[in-house]
Nucleic acid binder design. Structure first.
Lengths: 108, 108
DNA sequence: TTGACGCGTAGGAATTCTCCTACCTATCGT
DNA sequence: ACGATAGGTAGGAGAATTCCTACGCGTCAA
């Protein structure tokens, strides 16, 4: 139905602010589940569930290190979000109504 | 908590595939609610609800034309999604490990 | 004015989400 | 081996999501 293949799980994962914040925290580098949890006002099992959602969306990977579990960012699935977003870009830049936008459109 | 202000409603609106498809359809131009509905395998009240969600997220506007209601794309709120996505971009391009990515990073 | 049409709202059922409190497993230090 | 620590799973409550049917309101055409 849509032109670009999209993974529903990725968009669904981003719908929750806590999960978005996890991804932002992982921008700084891998982090243990417990350290991640310190940044949130929720119990650890709840965060653990969010981490599962992120894992199933392919947005993080888990790596066991002793009794810790290090989570790492896997940003690749986010690329399809920007791919999906791309056709809309010229619309929010329409306000500028510059020639470059029109040219970009033609190039597609 | 996060550096960039984000509108939860926009991410939540994009979580549903039907709503994403509505936005894609509106890329072609304004469309009446009924015509939009023809593209979906659901009853009109259900789509009407999706349109309400999109309206409240600021992603579409409604304009009455006789007994029709024309919906138009308002892409501007999507810009903050790409803004949010931007810090992740270099991570999915890391696989290329090219110099440009590193330079881009330094420039931020 | 009357009937058909376009489309939203009301209300409800089924499902999913998001949080919680237990609880279990595995690992580390002593 | 034993207690403490890290962190997942189980199960459940409450809220939100997503669909439905029924209905109401405004508009158009005759």
């Amino acid at each position: 139905m849509s032109g670009v293949p999209v993974n529903d799980d990725v968009f669904a994962a981003l719908a929750n602010p806590a999960r978005r914040e996890v991804l932002r925290l992982l921008l700084e580098g891998p982090m243990a589940a417990g350290e991640l949890a310190e940044h949130f006002d929720m119990r650890r099992p709840s965060l653990s569930e969010h981490l599962r959602v992120l894992r199933e969306a392919g947005l993080v990977t888990e790596q066991r290190a002793g009794r810790n579990r290090l989570y790492s960012l896997e940003a690749a699935p986010l690329e399809e979000v920007t791919t999906w977003l791309h056709p809309f870009e010229r619309f929010w830049r329409t306000k500028l109504t510059n020639l470059r936008d029109l040219l970009d459109e033609e190039d597609l």
